[in-house]
Design a protein around this nucleic acid. Sequence first.
DNA 1: AGAATGACCTGCTGGC
DNA 2: TGCCAGCAGGTCATTC
Length: 271
Amino acid sequence: MPELPEVEVTRRSFASEITGAQILAAVPGKPLRWPLGCSPARLVGQRVQGVRRRGKYLLVDLSAGLLLVHLGMSGSLRFAPSLPPAGMHDHFDLVTSQGVLRLNDPRRFGAVVFAESQDAAVAQKLLGGLGLEPLSDAFTFEALRAGLRASRAPIKQVLLGGKVVVGVGNIYASEVLFLAGIRPTVAAAAIGDVRMRRLHQAISDVLALAVERGGSTLRNFSSAAGNPGHFQLAARVYGRAGAPCLACGSTIQCLKQGQRSSFFCPRCQRP
DNA sequence: AGAATGACCTGCTGGC
DNA sequence: TGCCAGCAGGTCATTC
């Protein structure tokens, strides 16, 4: 369900409450995308040392290892002192001395994976190929340009791929390309400095604003504390095929790239 | 090696 | 009203 802002808002909503807690039980439900990778008993007794984020993964640091949590397309976390019995789509509970962290994920594209350390093979497989963190100091114009210059694939696909920059999902990919005036089909390597600068700025600004606003992309999004996201970042092009462009009035178009929908304004976004 | 496809799983919407 | 096709926020493995 989440793009980066939702994952970050989720992290902030429970990181401080769970930090320092001792794990009392780990209760898996139906299979998720990947197996936990260890016996639930192995987690018991470990302490939660903090919660970080890398791309769309949450990293729950434990006294002896870490849990990689991914929300997939439809996952969400709750953290509360106690929670009712697991419902139909609750597929993982981490019971701690400070509350229960619960993953609800109807489509089960999400996962909770244990790794002995961040260098462990599982962690490397999942995190090793990830690109720049768009909200970090490392996300400079030069770094983005260097990454994009190396790929001839359409820019929309490159943004979604996560190897150059992480966290830009299907909704924000359309939005930032609109703000930068770039057609989604343009080869990444063909983007000139002017539009590249606008793209860099758009990625930084849009994601930062969305985090600030509490994760506003999703219809059903709510943080782990149960606070609903507002809908303040109205999409300029995403989901608006056939409607007039808010900037020029042209009709917003939709096309399929890699089986995902891309939305763009044919006038504001040049090939 | 990079780039395009398929796969995973469930729920909701829209058209007939 | 009911059924079915198509679509949905992600990303890894497989194929070309």
